[in-house]
Amino acid sequence: GLPEGWEMRFTVDGIPYFVDHNRRTTTYIDPRTG
């Protein structure tokens, strides 16, 4: 799974992105792969 505090969501286009609730940021880069 994802690191603690992270969540995976999808855009309206079906593109996955990642929400970091710890820092309240979003990124398209998987936190597991950097």
Rank of each mutant, 00 (worst) to 15 (best):
E4V: 13
W6V: 05
M8T: 03
T11F: 02
I29T: 11
G14F: 04
R32F: 05
P16T: 07
D20W: 08
G34N: 13
T11W: 02
M8E: 03
D30H: 05
V12G: 09
G34S: 14
G5I: 05
D20S: 08
R24Y: 10
P16M: 11
P31C: 15
R9H: 08
G14Y: 03
V19N: 00
R9P: 00
E7D: 05
F18H: 00
L2H: 03
M8L: 10
E7P: 01
N22K: 11
F10T: 08
T27L: 04
G5D: 02
N22V: 15
P3F: 04
T26W: 15
R24W: 11
N22E: 11
D13K: 13
Y28E: 07
G14M: 07
H21M: 10
T27K: 03
G34L: 15
G1N: 12
T27H: 08
P3E: 03
G5N: 08
V12T: 13
V19H: 06
R32G: 03
H21Y: 11
E7F: 08
I15S: 06
F10K: 07
Y28S: 08
W6E: 00
T26V: 15
G1K: 14
P31I: 02
T25M: 14
T25L: 15
G1P: 15
I29K: 10
E4K: 13
E4S: 14
R32K: 03
P3K: 04
L2K: 03
D30I: 01
P31G: 01
V19I: 14
M8K: 05
P3M: 04
I15D: 07
R24H: 15
Y28D: 07
T33P: 11
V12M: 12
G5P: 04
D20K: 06
I15V: 12
Y28L: 12
R32L: 03
T25I: 15
R24D: 14
D30K: 01
Y28K: 06
P31R: 01
N22L: 14
D30N: 00
G34H: 13
G5R: 06
G5K: 06
I29D: 10
R9Q: 05
G14L: 06
P16R: 12
L2Y: 03
D30W: 02
N22R: 09
D20A: 05
V12N: 12
T27R: 03
L2G: 03
V19F: 14
W6A: 01
R24G: 15
F10Y: 12
R24S: 12
E4D: 13
W6K: 00
V19L: 11
F10M: 10
G5Q: 07
T27I: 08
T26G: 06
P31Q: 03
E4M: 11
I15P: 02
F10N: 03
L2M: 09
H21L: 10
T26Y: 15
G5M: 06
R9S: 04
F10H: 10
T25V: 15
I15A: 07
I29E: 11
F18S: 00
Y28N: 08
P31V: 02
I15H: 09
T27E: 03
F18G: 00
D30A: 02
P16N: 03
R23D: 11
R9M: 08
G5S: 07
T27V: 07
Y17K: 02
G1E: 15
G34F: 15
F18I: 02
G5L: 06
V19P: 01
T25D: 06
W6H: 00
P16W: 06
T11P: 01
G34K: 09
T11V: 01
Y28P: 07
L2R: 02
T26A: 10
T27Y: 07
M8A: 06
D13M: 11
V12Y: 13
L2P: 04
W6I: 05
N22H: 11
R9E: 02
E7L: 07
P31F: 02
R23L: 11
V12K: 15
V12F: 14
Y28H: 10
E7T: 12
D30L: 01
G1H: 11
F18Y: 10
H21F: 10
N22Y: 14
D20Y: 08
F18M: 00
G1I: 12
V19Y: 15
Y17D: 02
I29N: 09
T27P: 03
R24E: 13
R24T: 09
T33G: 11
R23Y: 09
I29A: 08
T11A: 06
R24F: 11
T26E: 13
I29M: 09
L2I: 06
G1Y: 10
R24N: 15
E7H: 08
F10L: 09
T33N: 12
H21V: 10
P16K: 09
W6R: 01
R23P: 02
D13W: 11
